[in-house]
Design a protein around this nucleic acid. Structure first.
Lengths: 126, 126
DNA sequence: ATAAGTATTAGAGTATACTCTAAGTCAAGC
DNA sequence: GCTTGACTTAGAGTATACTCTAATACTTAT
């Protein structure tokens, strides 16, 4: 397809590629998650492969518990460039710690749930 | 203290013990998460050690991604008793799978974040 | 030329999980 | 007796992340 050769995708293509809804993609643009997203002369959003990479990062950060507000801030720093590299590394390191804590917490929950499965009768009210 | 000997706690004691706010504890009661919670003659909520155990389970399920609606349904089944044991085991097994998926997803995010930390400059917009 | 299909926008609506307010009850201390 | 403080309620408000509606613009097929 034309779009693939030109490295240009419409919102519909991105819906297929990412599984995000068109509503969500427009919303992400609206709140500043895609600060460099291009438009054609008809004001239609044109996504590139780079934009797809950014969306993947956005989903990675969001799915690991970062708020969209913080992701927008991070994208702002990416827009500024190298002078924010230290700040970005610091933010990612903090987020990394948060992910590790979440994994620990989930492992703990997993143990509890396993225990409850094996002692199901203890859950019933007396 | 009197309360400890009697195995009876007011909402304030539970705030201290669990770290949940009094608002949250009342809200959990309101939406049916604590169907057997007792009141004294002044309509004041009286929590027992068993209620504290239930709150710990509620927090475990909530923190591992179960909605309060589903937790309320689970508590309803605990109220009914043994005849819902199979149903409860099924629900917990499904939740267990959900936790495992979340851990996998977080480990994946962790790898991506680690990679971004080591390639911070690639994140800057051109 | 007109209907279908895809895009745009601002802004309203929804779901979840709190969080708070206002008005009231009750017990204890001064 | 009266203030202080802890509790109660119904219901309003908040934050987050969508999700949808309505009006409009543009392209393509009949």
């Amino acid at each position: 397809m034309k779009e693939h050769i030109l490295n240009e995708y419409t919102i519909k293509d991105i819906v297929c590629k990412t599984g995000l809804s068109a509503y969500t993609l427009r919303y992400y643009d609206k709140i500043g998650l895609m600060p460099t997203l291009k438009r054609n002369d008809k004001k239609v959003r044109i996504y590139t492969n780079e934009d797809i990479c950014r969306l993947e990062l956005i989903c990675c950060l969001k799915d690991s518990g970062m708020s969209l507000k913080d992701i927008a801030r991070f994208m702002d720093m990416c827009l500024i460039g190298k002078e924010t590299n230290d700040e970005k590394i610091e933010l990612l390191k903090q987020h990394k710690e948060s992910i590790i804590k979440q994994i620990d917490s989930l492992n703990c929950s997993l143990q509890i749930v396993n225990h409850k499965i094996n002692h199901i009768d203890d859950l019933n009210f007396k």
